[in-house]
Design a protein around this nucleic acid. Structure first.
Lengths: 316, 316
DNA sequence: ATTAATAGGACGGATTCTGTCCTATATTAC
DNA sequence: GTAATATAGGACAGAATCCGTCCTATTAAT
């Protein structure tokens, strides 16, 4: 965002996408002073663009109702983001969308000027993403009806295969969908269990939309709930492990979890909650660097158990 | 018509309403010199607005189609793919693109029919992706010049920090970019080492485009080369391990690698090549299920070593 | 009254812009 | 082939703009 010209255009775009915006907000977005935003508004008015301004509390700028322009073509940055996104969708195989992705690319390229088009091509041809992809088998067939139900806030009837009880039938008010480690989940209120539950899509046999609407609780976050339901299954252990390594090597093993490591004089402290000492212990067993378990005792035990098992498995 | 900013925008408007216009005519209308009109045209091009210019008699300037986004139609599947892709790009934090992603979403929504728009909204609001994201710190600053160089098949000069030798300087013919486990890499022919090499972007200090073009070998695949360079560092061990578990549990641990498991009467056979027995052994150490190492011996040794270490680390 | 908005004048320093010279290049008409 | 009419863009120095930081005024909602 270099010159004033592009900023004025961006201001126009911002006003068109968001309805009303305050000067302060615009100033933040455009990275200029509030005073300058006023000057830009004035410039738009000089160009004959009808900007309504409202003074006082709850005031702000807005384009006159009915004034609509088509959006500007994507910028270089936007094209990068878009192309990377499509690459990611393709690499993650989140849904059975390979042909859809190609045709989206084709449609978008058709409306781009040559320069952008070749840029988009370059991105999709010369960038490779190696991402953990999902199971090869099942395209998530139930995604479509679930999305509809969530959008319309419509209850559904699920035929769901649990590990313990086999096929169950339950009425569910679906709140949100989640994709994690190659699998799709749907979260919602389950009338059978009378609680929030999360269901794996590949275990759903049948989805039936009901003529019952519901109201989604405010601020429901599927990821939040998922994490919560993982952590609260049992135990909820407070785990503290000191890793004797540096941030870079830690990142190689932990990925983004590495961000929450705390610096200590003798290493990096991993302070985290987990549901299951055994699971966490096994995970720790792959670390190429040394570590010290501060708490809990169960974790030490889990690691010892695993080590014992490994000795036997690799025995000659 | 006060400042240059307004005049550039007026020029845009003039070109939009009249079809073709000569520089002299534009200069007259804008009350500036012809030279300045040329500068304004240049400014528009820098903004990403495609202007065709025709030299010679009957020449002039004209806007090309594609400086605005036209209305667009997508199928349901395409909308899903597009929205998921943008969600993924946002979750992976591959580049410093959060604002770009939002504005792409906004622009696309503006050119879609209402029905699709609400669908796109529903997808981005009700679907959460939990994906391994990259390091919080460094937005990959060198992505842009590298992409340009790859696209133009232009050699570059890299200032690269290696672990062993510190800062090095080398001429590289960049072939492709790769994103893997939260990090960006560039692959290409390195004139210093006279071989294909892969460089981490966060270790690149400076990229300098050279006025030297090269020819990319046909069918170069960055992922291929990356895998190759990982595997061929040393040894190139042939590994065969029998996993005593089922496909589903195997997938939980192996991710997409699970696809290459072969069914055996007594379990699933993992037949793979790896460079380093130690690394692979440590990775195996986290498995919650039993397994049998068929070959090589080094792998058994590596697992025993790790198990031994774990015993010490978790000793009371 | 207070608060949170817009409105806009004044000013100085950093930056950009602009007209005037150039020369080069491409296309068309004759 | 040549002339005519376009665009393309480097260099330079003086003029203008742009922008943030001061102000003070005004308007509307709480």
């Amino acid at each position: 965002m270099s010159g004033p010209t592009i900023r004025v255009l961006t201001l126009l775009e911002l006003l068109q996408t968001h309805g009303r915006m305050t000067g302060t907000e615009l100033a933040r977005r455009l990275e200029v002073d509030k005073r300058t935003v006023r000057r830009y508004i004035r410039a738009l008015e000089d160009l004959g663009i009808p900007v309504t301004t409202e003074q006082g509390r709850d005031g702000g700028y807005r384009l006159m109702a009915g004034f609509k322009l088509p959006p500007m073509m994507f910028t270089n940055e936007e094209t990068l983001a878009l192309s990377l996104g499509l690459l990611a969708a393709s690499a993650l195989q989140m849904a059975d969308t390979q042909p859809a992705i190609s045709s989206v690319q084709a449609k978008l390229e058709r409306v781009m000027p040559d320069k952008l088009k070749s840029r988009a091509r370059a991105i999709s041809e010369h960038i490779r993403l190696m991402l953990p992809s999902s199971l090869p088998e099942p395209s998530p067939t139930h995604l479509e009806p679930l999305l509809t139900a969530i959008q319309a806030q419509q209850a559904i009837n699920l035929s769901y295969a649990t590990e313990e009880q086999g096929l169950t039938n339950r009425r569910v008010e679906p709140y949100g969908l989640l994709f994690r480690r190659g699998r799709w989940y749907v979260s919602g209120y389950c009338h059978l269990r009378r609680d929030l539950r999360t269901f794996r899509l590949d275990r759903i046999q049948r989805v039936q939309l009901l003529a019952l609407t519901f109201i989604r609780p405010d601020g429901f976050d599927a990821a939040e709930h998922f994490r919560h339901s993982l952590n609260n299954m049992q135990g909820n252990l407070h785990i503290r492990v000191l890793l004797h390594t540096d941030r870079e090597r830690a990142f190689d093993m932990l990925g983004s979890t590495a961000a929450m490591l705390e610096e200590r004089p003798d290493g990096l402290l991993l302070d985290i909650r987990s549901d299951c000492a055994q699971w966490f212990g096994q995970w720790l067993c792959q670390m190429p660097f040394d570590f010290t378990v501060i708490e809990p005792e169960e974790l030490k035990q889990a690691i010892q158990d695993q080590a014992q098992r490994l000795m036997t498995l690799a025995g000659r």
